[in-house]
Design a protein around this nucleic acid. Structure first.
Ligand code: MN
Ligand code: MN
Ligand code: MN
Ligand code: MN
Lengths: 152, 152
DNA sequence: GCATAATTATAGCTGTTGCTATACTCGATC
DNA sequence: GATCGAGTATAGCAACAGCTATAATTATGC
């Protein structure tokens, strides 16, 4: 049915094996999105008020409290947080490491968008989604651009 | 429990009502990601070879064929594609419109990353995820930057 | 200390996105 | 025109991410 492997791309479409790489990477990033947002938010809440309560996590994420409870259970199973019944949730060493890394990347993406001329509000909102799909190479390019343009 | 509404942000955390907006936008974008990728890919396959078969869609997305079959059923229910049993799938008018719009945004994001100095391979992979989280304002900033720097 | 409010836990549901296994249909070949 | 391979449909499963309703627990106020 399909043409035998020819080196001539007979249209605007790239090679299927190459194409699939991008989609796989995007799916993998999507799988990690929530985890990254949770640990980052937990770290911020602890840093801000000394504790991360389910109700506050839920309020900031815009989801119901049982949704948070279920996710925290999963994060605990994955060794990223530690929770004691009816008490707050804390980050493990690896959870803290992921939080620091995620927060730094988030910060760079948001700063980059602002440096590009996007309004702070839009930068804040778009960065929340974009951050999870920015590779190390792209992040470095973002950082370079933001540093070069920053008025600081 | 929580402080009464005070105008003084007592930490690095922004206002919860503002914070939740970003997460809601990211969740909404995530909800539309797959739909946009499907219609864009279907449009490309039709433009390339005149037809969009499930096996080809599956091969490019990196998923199994029944996964594609189920999604096409949903897209048909949503009025984005039309499929006849054991025949190819076609885009409706609104499906075509979404495809054109998604493809254009995708193209701009990828071109922007390249203009920023990211390698073509990384630009291709990162754009596949980033595209879905780029607002109209950010897209316009991307376009301006890419146009201003393009050597064409 | 006890009543009550706030918080967390749990049960049970839905919808989405993936999978494997298998049945069905279509078209090409002989 | 029967066969066989490619492609499609369907069934059934699992993980994930959300929800409501309600029970259990902790914390607060009197
Ligand atoms: Mn983040
Ligand atoms: Mn995020
Ligand atoms: Mn795309
Ligand atoms: Mn995409």
């Amino acid at each position: 049915m399909r043409e035998p492997p020819s080196s001539a791309p007979d249209g605007p479409l790239i090679d299927p094996e190459v194409h699939v790489e991008s989609f796989r990477q995007a799916r993998e990033a999507r799988r990690l999105e929530l985890v990254e947002d949770y640990v980052e938010l937990i770290a911020d809440l602890i840093g801000d008020g000394g504790e991360a309560r389910q109700v506050d996590i839920a309020a900031r994420l815009g989801v119901a409290q049982p949704t948070v409870a279920k996710m925290l259970k999963r994060l605990a199973e994955d060794g990223l947080v530690q929770q004691r019944p009816y008490r707050g949730v804390f980050l493990t060493a690896s959870g803290e490491a992921l939080a620091v890394q995620s927060r730094e990347r988030h910060r760079i993406v948001e700063r980059f968008l602002c440096a590009l001329g996007v309004s702070p509000e839009t930068a804040r909102r778009d960065a929340e989604g974009i951050e999870h799909h920015v590779s190390a190479e792209t992040l470095e390019a973002f950082r370079r651009f933001a540093d070069g343009r920053s008025d600081a």
